[in-house]
Write a protein that binds this DNA or RNA. Structure first.
Length: 826
RNA sequence: GCCAGAGUGUCGGAAUUGGCAGACGAGCGCGACUCAAAAUCGUGUGCCGUGAGGCGUGUGGGUUCGAGUCCCACCUCUGGCACCA
């Protein structure tokens, strides 16, 4: 029975149930149809959806439903990134086991997600904390290990004292923990790494073949990978056996070296300063540097300082004696931890040399650059010709780079190298709630991978949480006690777990074959579905998740598990949801709860508003009044359809619409203009806000048309049905209900997307603006087929035009057909 | 400091290829309905001016018949990078 009023709560519940019971959104491979894989970044199950989620999933659902109606075979799954620290914190705080807390949150969030009415195939749901999933996260580790891409090493790593675990470089932002903003410390520990640096060049190069990614994200990844090309070479140290090795991108400036710098942590520092009069000062400096955090030390604001070590290196190009210093601005973990300093052509070296009165020698002369170091106000880093460089004088600096590198190579002291800023990915975490690293330590056989058949290495339950620097699993004897898979003697399991970013680096492939118990996924399934055609999520993952996932995909491609090399063909990074100009947060007290909004206005209104308020990439300002507006619009749609229903229900649409009266023609024009506009806005630009405004315009047109006395019912029906179909990806429940009222049996979701009729877009008459000197003075209606000559005549004869060109001479006439005539006078 | 992106009514935002700035929505004003209110419907709404008209897309200049859009300089905001040799 038809309800008189728009009762969103009844309608939404009814259709959600209907969709679920009829498996409307279930997807399977179908070779006859082109596939389309839409994916939104899966959430961490914190327990409640926030507006950012709603925005993310509303965008994804428009894409999925639109593509479905456009004839694609859709994969649109959802799941949970369910390992991670909050579960452990909750366990400590509330005494609930992490697993219990997590599963309860998943249930609640799933319930909330279902009230949004998104077209997910829930049969494909994954949760990374379930053994059937993390079994294959461990499988990934084993494959990386087999291929020498997982290794353990002792290194100074980032330690978050609050989270009580180590972090990857990517998870340290401005020297602080990405999660809790605590300043991280350096700790020397033995940890597991993935050799992502082996893929540095490919991660960089492939960005070129990702035209569907925002330039912003690609730039961030390029910066992070930080490739630089240069030359590494050895220098003898006066009176010693040892050599020092430096990396430089400017071998062309090697004749301008006036001092060398070692990082304070460099192993040679102690050796070369020992026994010199400078030893005490060096020791003091090194000691002092230990207590300065990396953030401070690597900030551009920090003043450069250093001390002379007492030792000298020999410049291999001219045998000059060069003093070796140590300084705060040279870092141990980039390049070789040592540099050649050329103050004339490097800003940092210049500042340092000025401070300590070290000579500045010009070796590159640009067009207007100073020739003498003393005259310089700043370092000259531009192009130029080599000077003061012996046989190399007169060479262009680029040629100099090549020639000097080649020379060093020929005498066996150096070689051309490429340095990356990217570090290997530290994946061990001293935490309980993660996938255990599948490694066994045997006193006799060493560290060994857990045999594939023994996966998964199950996480034990009932674990005590003691705040210490060690994994809680180190206290669980039943977990760590095992036998060596090689010799059968008692052995010990690795007690660290994996970074949760490992779990999310391959989930998109698991969705293609989520119930496979033998393999993470079967190749024929991923061959059909991968890559993800449209990936949608927050820009905060620009480096972290998006780079790790690319790395995994390349690796899986290399071991022939995946055909694709890149996981995400198109990427949309959505903006944040703001309230009163800032991000919604509990501390600011400006949080709007999606649950409340859906309860008060319904999911259709919530979705519509969030898509209407701003284009998807931009930040969105939440507005309660804006929500009211969207709600009013849906009510208007409801009234239009229910009030016209009886008239149009039994009307058949003709093949062609001939002989229409002007009003009906106008409505048809507007209907088809709306179809065109909405289609192009979604398809080409993801401009959902303007697509919605076009639907609103159509509804306004229908509304005024239906108040007339004589109605052309087929035209009215066509307009109303087009409006419902166009609106259905945005607000699926109300359109489903009204679609049925119009006499249809099938779901709107399974309808074909409407096509516009070009002939309906042809107008008899168009409005032309008449300008004098670029200012609009009048507007006239003219036949659309009018010739330029005719238009010119009309313009010149126009009263208003004459008024404004009186006493002046017409110099020129500009005609833009269908738009305007501009009369140029003098 | 460097590199992106942005700056348009009271507000969110539109203008797709250099061609009528302000679509759509919100807010506000007026009117209808109502005992009244809400809802709804209709209508108006960039600024100045009684009016004719003038002005108007961060600022200043330029190109053009015509500039929110192109060029130059500058200001502000947002994001990213920032001793990476």
């Amino acid at each position: 029975m038809m309800e008189k009023n728009y009762q969103f709560d009844l309608i939404e519940e009814k259709w959600q149930k209907h969709w679920e019971e009829n498996n409307i959104f279930k997807s399977c491979e179908n070779a006859d149809l082109p596939k389309y894989y839409t994916l939104e970044m899966f959430p961490y199950p914190s327990g409640n959806l926030h507006m950012g989620h709603v925005r993310n999933y509303a965008i994804g659902d428009v894409v999925a439903r639109f593509k479905k109606m456009r004839g694609f075979n859709i994969l649109h799954p959802m799941g949970f990134d369910s390992f991670g620290l909050p579960a452990e914190n909750a366990a400590i705080k509330h005494g609930v086991p992490p697993a219990e807390w997590t599963y309860a949150n998943i249930e609640n969030m799933k319930k909330q997600l279902k009230t949004m009415g998104i077209s997910y195939d829930w049969d494909r749901e994954v949760a990374t904390c379930k053994p059937d999933y993390y079994k294959f996260t461990q499988w990934m580790f084993l494959k990386l290990y087999e291929n020498d891409l997982a290794y353990k090493k002792s290194a100074a790593v980032n330690w978050c004292p609050s989270c009580q675990t180590v972090l990857a470089n990517e998870q340290v932002v401005d020297g602080a923990c990405e999660r809790c903003e605590t300043v991280v410390e350096k700790k020397k520990l033995s940890q597991w790494f993935f050799k992502i640096t082996d893929y540095a060049q490919r991660l960089l190069d492939n960005l070129e073949v990702l035209p569907g990614w925002p330039e912003k994200v690609k730039t961030m990844q390029r910066n992070w990978i930080g490739r630089s090309e240069g030359c590494e070479f050895d220098l003898a140290i006066e009176g010693r056996e040892e050599k020092m090795t430096v990396f430089t991108t400017r071998p062309d400036t090697v004749f301008g070296v006036t001092y060398m710098v070692l990082s304070p942590e460099h192993p040679l520092v102690d050796v070369i300063s020992a026994g010199t009069e400078h030893e005490a000062a060096v020791k003091e400096f090194v000691h002092r540097m230990q207590f300065i955090s990396d953030v401070t030390r690597t900030s551009t604001d920090t003043e450069k300082e250093g001390v002379f070590t007492g030792a000298y290196a020999i410049n291999p190009m001219n045998n000059e004696k060069i003093p070796i210093w140590i300084a705060n601005y040279v870092l141990m973990d980039y390049g070789t931890g040592a540099i050649m300093a050329v103050p004339a052509h490097d800003e940092r070296d210049f500042d340092f040399a000025r401070k300590y009165n070290i000579p500045i020698r010009v070796v590159i002369k640009g067009e207007d650059s100073p020739a003498e170091g003393d005259q310089m106000k700043e370092a000259y880093t531009g192009p130029g010709k080599m000077v003061n460089s012996g046989d190399y004088d007169g060479l262009a600096y680029e040629d100099g780079k090549k020639k000097i590198t080649a020379y060093m190579e020929s005498i066996g002291i150096g070689k051309g190298t490429i340095n990356f800023r990217l570090r290997d990915w530290l994946i061990s975490r001293q935490r309980y709630w993660g996938a255990p690293i599948p490694i066994i330590y045997c006193d006799d056989c060493g560290p060994l991978p857990v045999p594939e058949k023994d996966l998964p290495v199950l996480l034990p339950e009932n674990v005590a949480f003691k705040p210490s620097g060690e994994s809680p699993l180190t206290y669980v004897q039943s977990f760590y006690e095992t036998v060596c898979p090689c010799c059968g003697k008692p052995a010990r399991r690795e007690t660290d777990t994996m970074d949760t970013f490992v779990c999310s680096s391959w989930y998109f492939a698991r969705y293609c074959d989520p119930h496979n118990t033998e393999l993470p996924f079967a190749k024929d399934k991923t061959d059909y579905w991968m890559a993800v055609d449209q990936y949608i999520g927050g820009v905060e993952h620009a480096i972290l998740h998006l780079m790790y996932a690319r790395f995994f995909t390349m690796f899986l491609h290399d071991i022939k598990m995946l055909s694709v090399e890149e996981p995400f063909t198109n990427l949309l990074t959505q903006g944040m949801v703001l309230k009163d100009g800032s991000k919604m947060s509990k501390t600011k007290g400006n949080v709007v709860s999606p649950e409340e909004i859906i309860k008060t206005y319904g999911a259709d209104t919530a979705r519509l508003f969030i898509l209407f308020a701003a284009p998807p990439e931009r930040d969105l300002e939440w507005s309660d009044q804006g929500v009211e507006g969207s709600y009013r619009f849906l009510n208007r749609v409801w009234r239009i359809v229910t009030e016209c229903m009886e008239m149009i229900q039994d009307v058949n649409l003709p093949e062609t619409f001939a002989e229409l009266d002007p009003e009906a023609r106008e409505l048809r024009y507007r209907t088809h203009a709306a179809i065109k506009k909405v289609t192009e806005d979604i398809e080409e630009r993801f401009n959902f806000n303007t697509a919605i405004s076009a639907i609103m315009e159509l509804s306004n047109s229908i509304n005024s048309y239906r108040n007339q006395e004589e109605l052309d019912l087929p035209v009215l029906k066509e307009a109303i049905e087009a409006m419902l179909l166009l609106l259905s990806p945005f607000s699926p429940h109300i359109t489903e209900e009204l679609w049925q009222y119009c006499g249809h049996q099938d779901s709107v979701y399974s309808q074909s997307w409407p096509k516009w009729d070009e002939s309906a877009l042809v107008k008899d008459e168009v409005e032309i603006a008449l300008q004098v000197l670029g200012k609009v003075r009048d507007r006239v209606m003219v036949p659309s087929e009018i010739s330029n000559e005719e238009l010119e005549k009309i313009a010149l004869a126009n009263e208003r035009v004459q008024e404004f060109s009186q006493g002046k001479q017409v110099v020129k006439l500009i005609v833009v057909p269908g738009k305007l005539v501009n009369v140029v006078v003098k």
